[in-house]
């Protein structure tokens, strides 16, 4: 049973209006900033929002805070949806045991939720959501409450389970890594509406909004293309490799592909050269991210050695150059 529905929820001034469709076996990630309506969408799909008369069927719902029933053991928790269906205790217990084994928490079967670690609790919660074999599996930030090491481990478990799952899975997350690694398709929600919908590989190559570009770690520029030149909305122009593009368009460039220099470069093959001013520096792992205002405004990644050599500091004038071949330009969706 595939999923095709249109979720509409109104709450005060906030409106959620999201068409959702997915095929069996597909994993849909819903990505978006806080307040975008991700959780509301999921609750509506589960029939928990009063305004939206969602499908009146059992779903598997995995909550960020696990929500294992505190008075029941892990096994009883997993058996709960089966017992609710009227399946007898012994049989439900046997099915629960196979699911506990599948998720690697057999040893914790008799434990009460308070005795489980976060990772174990989320595995049990996953077993509980899956054991009734729902047509729709809903996951609300399932890894958000876990510490970094446990998150890696549970993400791997989740990956395995989602691959084996035959129904439709909808995963809500604010972590791009979850969306990119677990989903077949990513729906980006901003302000209650879908702003982009794409396969993970396309999403990170061709982000449609500043939010997605930031998640992908890319500089995003917006403008109007004619004859291989992008006239930027914020002023300035960009020479593109692709001359065929015309109309509203977007262009992205990796911060590490932008070259920063003290003096205006003359002997350069780069087609795009413009002056800018440094507004900030931030250490990111083994690189330093330099914020430069142009136009266009760009982030530039350099090595700490380059910062020292160029003696870069906020307020400094610099020259940026970008090769046309490092620019990815595409029509605005």
């Amino acid at each position: 049973m595939s999923l095709a529905t249109h979720v509409q929820v109104e709450r005060g001034s906030f409106t959620l209006d999201v068409p959702i469709d997915a095929d069996d076996g597909e994993v849909l990630a819903v990505l978006g900033p806080n307040g975008a309506g991700k959780t509301t969408l999921l609750r509506a799909l589960a029939g928990l929002e009063r305004q939206h008369f969602g499908p009146d069927r059992a779903v598997g719902f995995v909550f960020q805070d696990y929500r294992l029933f505190p008075h029941l053991s892990a096994r009883e928790n997993v058996a709960f949806p089966l017992r609710s269906k009227g399946i007898r205790r012994v049989e439900a217990g046997q099915v629960a045991d196979t699911w506990l084994a599948r998720l690697g928490v057999t040893d914790q079967a008799a434990f009460k939720p308070a005795e489980l670690s976060g990772g174990q609790a989320q595995r049990v919660a996953l077993a509980r959501a899956l054991c009734a074999q729902p047509a729709l599996l809903l996951l609300d930030e399932p890894l958000a409450a876990l510490d970094a090491a446990t998150r890696v481990e549970v993400r791997a478990v989740l990956h395995q389970q989602l691959r084996d799952f035959t129904g439709v899975a909808v995963l809500v997350t604010h972590d791009p890594l979850d969306a990119l690694s677990l989903a077949d398709r990513v729906v980006v929600l901003e302000g209650g509406r879908v702003v982009q919908q794409a396969r993970p590989a396309d999403l990170v190559r061709r982000p449609a909004t500043a939010y997605v570009a930031a998640l992908a770690g890319l500089n995003l520029m917006r403008g109007t293309a004619t004859g291989g030149v992008l006239q930027l909305d914020g002023g300035g122009t960009l020479v593109l490799g692709d001359r065929s593009l015309s109309g509203r368009a977007l262009a992205v460039v990796r911060p590490s592909a932008v070259l920063v220099e003290r003096d205006e470069p003359h002997a350069t093959s780069a087609r795009n050269v413009y002056p800018g001013r440094v507004t900030g520096l931030e250490q990111l792992g083994d690189r330093v991210r330099v914020a430069v205002t142009g136009p266009p405004d760009l982030f530039v990644d350099v090595t700490p050695a380059a910062v020292a050599d160029l003696r870069l500091a906020p307020g400094d004038q610099v020259w940026l150059s970008v090769k046309a071949t490092d620019l990815e330009a595409y029509p605005e969706p």
Partner: peptide, 27 residues
């Protein structure tokens, strides 16, 4: 109320939720 909500998503009827979740929690 979060536990009752969880029970609802797992397909429990109102009566089952009351009997197996609400009642034990306020026992």
């Amino acid at each position: 109320r979060r536990y009752e909500e969880a029970a609802t998503t797992l397909g429990a009827s109102g009566w089952t939720t009351f009997r197996r979740v609400t009642l034990p929690l306020v026992a």
